[in-house]
């Protein structure tokens, strides 16, 4: 497998008023295509910042970041939005579903940015919901689903446009143990059987066990790399 993500000398500095806070210090990292990587570390270590940079949600202050050969640090906001729509799926700790839309409509959201017609969008969303085991809950709104089910809808939304990369920020942080294992099992299936490259931030060592590799960050620096 080749390298999908290349980070070189990557830095991120936040300006809060007059204060400058350097969150990431000169990170060098390669993530292989098809990898399942967990990132761990204490709060404030820069995990989510690094994840945001890999997902194209934020721009680095220094260094470079390339995903499948595309230099994200050289893209403007509009181009980054188009790149995210085509190449990345996002899973958040609190699911972040639209409460007024059904599961089906939530999953269809990324497809609104494609040229698919309504029938094709419904069909693809239905397939994604089947894949996460919620084909019979398509008409339900998020408020009518359990936390684990909502997270699976969020995963269906993340994969519906078939991106190569999934970035997951604490995907099990709000779930009970059983639901967390279901979600992690699903992510492992997506990684192993569908070839998705997954980068996951977690505080939970048990969640990290589902990944192929675990990176540890502390104070914005990579301190250790473990292989599962």
């Amino acid at each position: 497998m080749g390298t999908l993500i290349e980070l070189r000398n990557l830095s991120k500095v936040y300006e809060r008023g007059r204060q400058k806070v350097e969150v990431l210090h000169h990170i060098d990292l390669d993530i292989a295509e098809g990898d399942f990587l967990a990132m761990m570390g204490p709060s404030g270590s820069g995990k989510t910042t690094l994840l945001n940079l890999i997902g194209g949600l934020d721009s680095p202050s220094g260094g470079s970041i390339a995903v499948a050969g595309q230099r994200l640090d050289q893209l403007g906001a509009g181009a980054l939005a188009r790149w995210r729509a085509a190449h990345v799926g996002f899973v958040f700790q609190f699911y972040n579903l639209m409460p007024m839309l059904s599961a089906q409509r939530n999953v269809e959201l990324p497809l609104l940015l494609t040229r698919l017609n309504g029938a094709q969008r419904r069909k693809n969303a239905g397939i994604a919901l089947q894949l996460v085991g919620l084909g019979d809950r398509a008409a339900h709104k998020p408020g009518e689903l359990s936390g684990g089910q909502q997270q699976r809808v969020a995963i269906a939304r993340a994969i519906v446009s078939d991106p190569a990369l999934l970035v997951c920020d604490e995907p099990t942080g709000d779930l009970d143990r059983q639901s967390a294992e279901d979600v992690l099992g699903l992510l492992r299936t997506l990684n192993r059987e569908h070839g998705k490259t997954i980068v996951m931030v977690t505080h939970d060592p048990k969640a990290a066990e589902y990944a192929n590799h675990t990176l540890h960050l502390d104070k914005g620096t990579l301190v250790e790399q473990a292989t599962a």
Binding site: A81, R82, A85, A86, N96, P110
Partner: peptide, 15 residues
């Protein structure tokens, strides 16, 4: 706010 941020996250442009 969070929902709009999610829309932008999944690729909806600012416009």
């Amino acid at each position: 706010t969070a929902e709009l941020a999610v829309l932008k996250t999944i690729g909806f442009s600012s416009r």
